[in-house]
Structures are given as C-alpha cells and as structure tokens.
Amino acid sequence: MKKIIPVLKVAPIIRNVKNRTIVISEKTLEKTRYFNDFMTETANFFLFISHTFKATFSRDFEFREFFRQCFQIGYKSLPLVSITGFIVGLVLTIQTRPTLVNFGADSMLPGMVAISLIREMGPVIIALICAGKIGSGMGAELGSMKVTEQIDAMEVSSANPMRFLVVTRVLAATLMIPVLVLYADFLGILGSWAGANIKGDVSFSLFFSQAFGKIDYIDFIPAFIKTIFFGAVIGIVGCYKGFTAGRGTESVGIAANTAVVLASLLVIILDLIAAQITDMI
C-alpha cells in the first residue's frame, strides 16, 4: 500500500521577509512538526480507507476468512457483551428506581431503561467494549503479522493482503457489532427486569410489554444505524494501526494501544454527530 511520507520541511530561520529577519524558535518548529505528523497520519488514514473500499468491491472476495472473522468478532465476544449488557441494565435500574419512586413515576421505569439502553447506553458501551477487545486484537494481530513478514509473504503469494486481512475484518466488524449491540440491549432489559425485582415484584411479560411499548422506530433506527458506523470505525482503525505498525516488537504494543484509543475516541465523536443528526429529525 502506498503511504504518504511527510515532505514539509521548515527551515529554522526564514530571512528577508519584507526586509526583516524572522527567527522561528525550536518550540514553534516542534509544534509545526507535530502538526505535520498529524496531517500526514490523517492523510494516510483516509488513503487506507479508500484502499479498503477499492479492495471491498474488487473480485475474489474472501468468504471463508470473512466467516471466520464473523465468528471471532461475534461469537467470541458473546460472554463479555452478555455480562456487560446485563449489568448495565441492572445498574441503570438500581440507580434510577429511587428517583422515579420519589416522583411516583416507578411505572415509567421499564420504558425509561429500554429507551436509554437502545438509544445510547447499549450502542456506546458495547462499541467501547468492542473497541477494546476487537480493535486491540486486530491491531496486535496485524501488527505482529507485519513484524514477522507474514503480510509481505501474502503479498508475494499473489494474494491481496488488503482483501484478505482488512476487508474481511472491517466487514465482519461492521456486521457483527450491530448484532452484538441488539443482543446486549435485550440482555440489558433482562437485567433491568432483574433489578426491578430486587425490591419489587414485576412479572416478566408485564415488564417487557411496558419496555417495548415505549420504544418507537425513531428510538431504534438511528441507534441501529450508528452501530453500523461504530463497527466500521472499530474495524478500520484496528486494521489501519496493525497494518501500519513499525518493524519492532514494541510497535505491536503501540499498534494495539493506539487502535483502542483512536477507535474509542472516534466512537464518541460519531455518537455526538449521530445525536446532532437525530435531534434534527
């Protein structure tokens, strides 16, 4: 894959600008370098996305690897997602119940928990959990493949590593993370029912009918769409960081770490954008 290499070079001293000598301090130069590096990294990231798109629509899709990745990302994340989803619903109920009881609005509990889980808590928390688990896994796996020349070996085997390694992972994450979020939402409502029954006695069918009765398409559809973007971002950041890892073993750790940090940050930023768009609808 072609990479943009920083070309901006700033001389320490620029002379004779309008007959005056301007001296640029080392500190300013350092800031310029940071900015230069940031812009280069951003350009490389977008270049990587464009290569991924191009490879996605090329012939010879790697179905076998795609299903393997779906299994790795989806099935193997189930225990973590199940526990997280259930506990989030449970804690949300335990925390909000006393306030609702004070206002005499405890009958609103199932609907409130369901809406907050489906609209915000479920997608964001599960996406952040997946950014940690899946993003770091991809960063570390592809990073170590780069260090041990496995990506180069694929390249010389006439295989397209972008198609085999990146496209399959990004598509699997894009497909599986929304499914995991839906599953976690359901378990969250189940956890909420369990929480409601700690200090009360609510039947399963009543709680669920009240919870789902309050949910509208406008709660569900934008939240589902944003999880698709969360999945794509987690996949693409994990792959980008792994694919562009340096040559030493230290760079594998750095790739995994920066994949988690960047994917989490982008999930939060995307969530903000999604909230603004939903608000306008």
């Binding site: 796996e141 493949m145 041990t148 020349e149 496995q150 070996a153 694929m154 010389v156």
Partner: peptide, 13 residues
C-alpha cells in the same frame, strides 16, 4: 517467483 523469508513468515493462525 518463490520467496523464502528470513523468519519463515508462516501464517500463525
């Protein structure tokens, strides 16, 4: 062209 890598570069997975 066949290429034998220094590290072997076998696919771990």
């Amino acid at each position: 062209i066949g290429f034998l890598f220094q590290s072997g570069a076998l696919y771990d997975s």
